[in-house]
Simulated assay, not measured.
Amino acid sequence: MTLGFVVGKFYPPHRGHKHLIDTARRQVDRLVVLLPHHVTQKIPGEVRKRWLEEIHPDCEIHLVPDELENDSEQWAKFTREYLGRSPDVVFTSEDYGPGFAEHLGCRHVMVDRLRQTVPVSGTLVRREPLSHLDFLEPCVRAWFVRRVVLSGAESTGKTTLAALLAREFETAWVPEYGREYWEAKVAGLSMDGPLPGWSSEEFVTIASRQQQREELAARSANKVLICDTNAFATGLWHERYLGHRDERVDAIGRADSVALYLLCEPDFPFVQDGWRDGERIRDWMHGRFVEELAKTGVETVRLRGPLEARVREAKRAIEAVLRKPFDL
């Protein structure tokens, strides 16, 4: 059985790495991919390992601490000890490859050293991730796409704005799953009559499903993903209906990746669309959004006035977010 070996930081994994690993996998019976992670790297090693496992399910992905110098002889010694033997063949796209293989006492295969087959590098991606999204697999792409969330009480124009902004930026948007869930829950009932109650488990489901839909949409979004609410907001709706917070819901909300919140002000009359029940507490809910968003540390822009003014201010804020460099 032929054992192949690939080592790299994959910071982040891009299609050049995919070409390297795919090429290696076709030539061996078993391929081990070693991912050394250093504590100073901003994309956690566990995240990169998970990405590689999704992209290359037929390879063995191993995460190890990056504690050695850039010395081929040291890494060859570590590799032999880690694997319990030398691999039969090492695949690289770097100049260190032949020397590394020589220290291991195995064959070396150079793959696309000049980046002609896949013209990209980790340095280019880190410098301008949003300009190189097409060189990233969907799971990696989703990590870099900026998430912009429309937030606020009922009847403040969030859904209308989300759809308009998605068209403006030629990207995807994620509708509010809680709204979909509520419509199914009260189908056939009058909003003026008794309405069914809520359970914490329902809010856990709503928050989880909202987040899952965002993750899926981010995989194909164009630089920015517009979200009509998010799991963070679900915690506030739990408070509104049940009178207290739920740590399970809040934990899902804390996991949200948000670059910008757009908080819609309730400065126009409440519109009853046949499904809403929050007219009496709209101002209270808005106040709670103001309070809780301030705790997140995420930039929040408050949108006021007529629709045209809101779109204009939202576009300005999103364009500013897209210009911000990534901390990599």
Rank of each mutant, 00 (worst) to 15 (best):
V109R: 14
R126L: 13
K49T: 08
G152F: 12
P87L: 10
E54Y: 00
D58Y: 12
W51T: 02
L52V: 01
P138A: 02
K49N: 03
F135W: 12
S121T: 15
V140E: 04
L104Y: 02
E69C: 08
A153W: 00
G45L: 01
T117L: 15
A153K: 04
E46H: 04
W51L: 05
D112R: 11
Y96F: 14
R113G: 05
M110P: 05
L165T: 01
T123A: 13
R146N: 00
F135P: 00
L164S: 08
V90Q: 12
L68K: 07
R167G: 05
S72A: 14
T117E: 15
V109F: 04
G84I: 01
L124Q: 14
G157N: 03
H108W: 14
M110C: 09
G105M: 00
Q41S: 13
S121A: 08
D134A: 11
P129K: 07
P65D: 07
L130C: 03
W51Q: 05
K49H: 08
Q116L: 15
W75G: 04
R85S: 13
Q116M: 13
T159G: 12
A162N: 00
L68H: 01
Q116C: 12
N70H: 09
K42P: 04
R115W: 10
D71Y: 01
E73K: 14
K49V: 06
L63C: 08
A163S: 09
V149M: 07
V125Y: 12
P65N: 07
I61V: 11
D58G: 11
E60V: 13
E154W: 10
P57F: 04
L52Q: 01
E168F: 05
P87N: 05
R50G: 15
V125E: 06
E46F: 01
F78Q: 13
E128G: 04
L52G: 02
V118R: 10
N70L: 10
A162C: 05
I55E: 00
F91A: 01
T156M: 06
L124M: 15
L104P: 00
A142G: 06
S121L: 09
D88L: 13
L63A: 06
E53F: 04
K77W: 08
K158V: 05
R50T: 02
P129S: 00
L150S: 03
V125H: 11
L165C: 00
W143Y: 15
W143H: 14
L150G: 02
V140R: 04
G152D: 12
L124D: 13
W51P: 03
P87F: 10
R141W: 00
S151M: 13
H103E: 10
G122Y: 06
D134V: 02
G105P: 11
S72T: 11
L161H: 05
E67G: 06
E67T: 15
S121P: 13
I43H: 12
R48V: 11
L114E: 15
V148H: 04
D112T: 13
V64W: 02
V149Q: 07
Q74A: 14
A166R: 06
I55H: 06
V118C: 04
E73T: 08
V125S: 07
R146I: 02
W51E: 08
T92F: 09
G105T: 07
F78E: 10
R50I: 01
P44N: 08
E67A: 14
C106D: 09
K42E: 15
T117R: 15
T123R: 14
